[in-house]
């Protein structure tokens, strides 16, 4: 094979692994929710669970078929956009999710727009002035944010911005989007919290990536030739650190998936995560499965994207 094709071969291989992973993950999600609990028909019927009714409902829902058949049927339905019907309110899962998904994506999008530039600036800055007071403050702050649970970051944000400063409403999601300021206020808290969690990761990884390039001989050479620190970092180290940095950004964004679950719950934000947490408390299995798959797919695509960037930006594979 020609040398120049090697990275693309690796990328395709990575995609294949991601697909295989997705199948295993969907298998795990399906069987964790479908096989472990007690009889679904009995749960659904509740008080009215006479043996005949249970048998009838099992037949109607196709529960008597072998599990593998049901899994394949579920997977095919999933691919075709048929997510099944909610157990609790008999609504199509697609309908329940579609509106919520937009909300969650909006939250994630705004967070990304804010946190990426801030995190890159802070991370590169900390690497540039490594060991300085600025670097130490950034390091202590990021490690503190990483070491505490997401809900604590949210709690602190509420304490500071709502309780002490009184700028923003505390724990309610205002459905009031009539004016720009009202909308900003409604989004502010969840976005601030998520941005903190995601940026902390991103700053640490960016700093590590830039420092790694600074430690290479050619950057040291630039320094020895008399280039200023700024020129050394921005002109020589940064272009070569772009790949690892992009990798870091994609990886950190995958923390959105976990963060969003907590943040939507604490701020009562009507997104997919809130829907899923509510579905867990009502044991609404089709809804849980679909939400879980949405999260797994987004998480997996971000991780795969990060890996592919890492492969493509590796100069040893680029000839």
């Amino acid at each position: 094979m020609p040398q120049s094709l090697t990275p693309w071969f690796l990328v395709i291989q990575r995609l294949g692994i991601a697909l295989l992973t997705l199948v295993i993950v969907s298998f795990a999600v399906f069987f964790a929710t479908e096989l472990l609990p007690g009889d679904v028909a009995e749960i659904l019927l509740g008080q009215a669970a006479t043996p005949e009714a249970v048998a009838g409902l099992r037949e109607a829902m196709g529960l008597n078929e072998p599990a593998l058949n049901r899994f394949i049927g579920w997977l095919v339905g999933l691919l075709g956009g048929d997510l099944g019907t909610s157990y609790v309110n008999k609504m199509e899962v697609v309908e329940l999710i579609s509106g919520r998904l937009g909300n969650s994506l909006k939250l994630a999008g705004v967070t990304t727009l804010i946190s990426v530039p801030v995190a890159l600036a802070l991370g590169i800055g900390a690497a540039m002035w490594r060991g300085s007071l600025f670097d130490r403050i950034v390091s202590v702050l990021t490690i503190s944010v990483i070491s505490v649970p997401e809900f604590m970051v949210a709690t602190l944000a509420v304490l500071i911005f709502a309780v002490w400063l009184g700028w923003l409403p505390a724990l309610s999601y205002g459905a009031d989007v009539s004016s720009l300021s009202a909308m900003l206020k409604a989004y502010a808290m969840p976005v601030i919290t998520l941005a903190f969690v995601v940026s902390a990761q991103m700053i640490r990884m960016t700093r590590a990536a830039v420092i790694e390039t600074i430690n290479t001989p050619y950057v040291e050479m630039a320094l020895l030739k008399g280039a200023s620190r700024k020129r050394m970092v921005l002109g020589h180290a940064l272009p070569n650190a772009l790949g690892p940095i992009a990798n870091a950004v994609a990886l950190s964004l995958s923390y959105l998936v976990g963060g969003v679950i907590i943040v939507e719950t604490i701020f009562n934000y009507p997104g997919v995560a809130k829907l899923m947490v509510d579905a867990v408390s009502t044991r609404d299995l089709p809804l849980i499965q679909s939400c879980a798959m949405i999260f797994c797919v987004s998480y997996l695509s971000l991780i795969t994207l990060a890996d592919m960037i890492a492969i493509l930006s590796n100069p040893r594979l680029r000839r």
């Binding site: 295993i24 964790a32 472990l36 976990g258 907590i262």
Partner: peptide
């Protein structure tokens, strides 16, 4: 290795949610 790598493809909090929902 392949099997356990696949498990890394599930966000940890989500994994907990699904299992707790089930059992």
């Amino acid at each position: 290795s392949r099997l356990l790598d696949a498990f890394n493809g599930i966000p940890s909090l989500l994994f907990g949610l699904v299992v707790v929902a089930a059992v």
